[in-house]
Amino acid sequence: DEAEQLTPVLPDGLKEENLQLVSELKDSSGSCAVDVSTVWWEAAGCKELCVVTASESSVSLWEPLAPSHWGKVCTWHLGEIPVIQIVPLPDTCNLVCVALGELEIGEIRTLLYSSETDLFKHSLVKSGNIKAVVGLKDQRLVSSIRTLQEQQVEMVWLSGTGRSKDRQTLMPPEETVTAFAEVEGMREALVGTTAANSVVVWSVNLKTGQLLRKMHVGYSYPASICHRAYSDSGLLFVVLSHPHAKESESCGNPAFRVVAFNPRTGRSRGVMFSSLPPSPAGRQVLGYLEGDVWDTAGAAVLSSGAVAVWDLLRGGCTAVLPPGPAGCWALARWAMAGAGLLAGQRDGTVHLYRY
């Protein structure tokens, strides 16, 4: 009954049918789940999309078995530093990347299987006071590190064994970079969002890391986080989320926005807003806890323990997963290759939904 009361109401009624439950996996280790993701994994000539789950002390790889069943392939046990998040590496096979730390990220490690030694190993890629990290196509990782005096922004090219094979320093903006996104279809273009609510654009290759442009997002929507970027007709479109959406209620409570920037002039205009669904009358206004974007779909865990899904180009909420009987949703991640939505609970239960 409580879960029902906490479920946000969609204008056209509940559209849970847009999400079809495909399978469930449950980590029975009893440790608290901190993240979930997917990775391509090839073994014995068979390449499959596997699920990765992380608790504070370990990371597990799950392979699809019979329809709607998952089997644990292996577990990497990490050291003293807790795992904070999994860093997905698009189009990479047999390599998992994780961020570890206490309150903030202190280390980035790659996890892999060595057939020579038949061991599941991990390797340190980066350490420091890491403010943002993202995995890009072609086995690249980009991160921002704050030191007392300055900020270091660096791109790392990873080898097949998860070690860095090349590094390129990018010119840092004055403000701390809070998120990165590659510009789709433009291998050398990278964007980032900053703590002062700007979008920055870099040119990235092994020779240069020029900062090309800094463009302000606007003060109405604080703490914008970039998820996707693409260039079309001379404009740079950036998909932003607003983790403090609840606090900017007067602006329509946007969880996600698509903003068009003209990189030549630095001017911008909002193209589409995806607002938080209205909460039932008399209940506390819903807040955005964390989210993820894949293609034109956004998903976020709300403060009610529900997961909401939006069509970012139309601006509408298309589905809501109410909190399950066993508890609230804590994680919402899009699986790679359009395989669907992963919704996770703290007890290690993960549901895969087709969208």
């Binding site: 654009v201 240069t208 090309l212 001379g234 990189p263 030549r264 002039t265």
Partner: peptide, 23 residues
């Protein structure tokens, strides 16, 4: 979006900004 709100648009913005930016 049009040029009236966003200013002159260039299809080659990335190449142009890369050439103009200091190395």
């Amino acid at each position: 979006c049009s040029e009236s709100d966003l200013g002159p648009i260039s299809l080659n913005w990335f190449e142009e900004l890369s050439t103009e930016a200091p190395p």
